[in-house]
Design a protein around this nucleic acid. Structure first.
Lengths: 205, 205
DNA sequence: TCTACAAACGGACAATTGTCCGCTTTTCAT
DNA sequence: ATGAAAAGCGGACAATTGTCCGTTTGTAGA
């Protein structure tokens, strides 16, 4: 007798909420819009809103995910067509895409970890767009690891090399945490171009 | 007729608040204690609490500042006695102190940017303890900059070299954002020692 | 010592977040 | 079709943050 597993109309509400939030965030600003207001605009109750997105950060993350699709496509295209370049140069190229994106969308990215109670500070690092870039970057760094071979059998040594590359990629991306980039611009007075060039000096050679 | 400029009893209340917060945070946990509760325990009103510390993050920052004093002393001592070592090795040493500290006190450090409305995401980067470490680290990287001379006249070239060193130091420290370190441990399963060694590979050679 | 003034206080209040629970709607076996 | 069970809804409610303003209190000049 355990039959109804999922209701087909529930997804529609989540779509409405996302749409409403996107519009309101664009019209005003992320922090000027309350969750109550979003629910009202979407024409749903508070409960429905919070069931779809547990807090404002999740909403921002969902929108950022949509917004990132374009950049991710460009990045994939770049990687497909830059096979001939040395890995360090490719890393520099990736950096440009990432920094451009963060610089552009930081208003949306910052609130992702503006969580109140949940203590979910690493939400940003677990978002699909972060994982995607992390993975691509790890692949580049792996090429630079001594002893690493693509598609090699899964030995302990290969796994160790991948793990080292993955840590490097994470450290790089972690320093590109939106808050850090904002500080470089506002607090240190660097331009986007200067930021890219400093990153390349450190990470792409 | 403009006479009373500052009241000597006001500082006492701030001290009481800090003390109460410290005790409550230790007893329960940072997020389990409400601002109201802190005010009550300290025996002051909400208004007084918020006049001293505009939000929970500031309170955490103030406590972290106190807690950091020890580590900072150790670090200064280390730098005083390690003059003979090459700069890269000294950077590695500094990294150990920093990572140890963050790993130890992240519960206090995380909420510093858990701000609700203020949109003050770079509070962490402006805290005195951050500035201190940043400054020391910049000095080490400056030594590695081609063309940099200590106590040289203030030419454009010298300033440029210092600025490059300062950006590198910030990038390093920015990736040591508590949230990022927590993720390396929880999300990636690295130990403190592994984290230190990965950082040294990237930043201290 | 007295007095006037502004700094500082404190608690009531507004705003916002996030939860809870009774009600409605979809689903599916009969 | 139909009815029962669970998925989903929504808005009232609790909790928490942060503000505001009438009142208190220390300070300094007289």
């Amino acid at each position: 007798m355990i039959k109804p597993r999922k209701r087909s109309d529930a997804a529609e509400n989540c779509r409405l909420i996302l749409q409403a939030a996107k519009r309101l965030f664009a019209e005003k600003s992320v922090q000027a819009v309350s969750m109550h207001q979003i629910a009202q605009t979407a024409g749903v109750g508070q409960g429905t809103l919070y069931r779809c997105y547990a807090h404002k950060g999740e909403l921002c993350a969902a929108i950022a995910e949509q917004v990132a699709v374009d950049t991710i496509k460009q990045l994939e295209n770049y990687l497909d067509t830059s096979g001939g370049l040395p890995a360090t140069e490719r890393i520099g190229g990736i950096l440009q895409y990432i920094i451009q994106f963060i610089d552009d969308k930081f208003q949306l990215l910052l609130p992702i970890h503006t969580v109140h109670d949940c203590e979910d500070e690493s939400a940003y690092f677990r978002s699909p767009m972060y994982r995607f870039v992390w993975d691509k970057l790890t692949a580049q760094y792996a090429e630079l690891e001594p002893g690493y071979v693509q598609n090699a059998p899964d030995t302990a040594e290969q796994r160790e090399a991948w793990s080292r590359a993955s840590a490097k990629a994470h450290i790089l991306l972690s320093s590109l945490h939106p808050a850090g980039v904002v500080f470089m611009r506002e607090g240190m007075g660097l331009t986007k171009e200067q930021i890219v060039s400093r990153y390349c000096e450190l990470f792409a050679r």
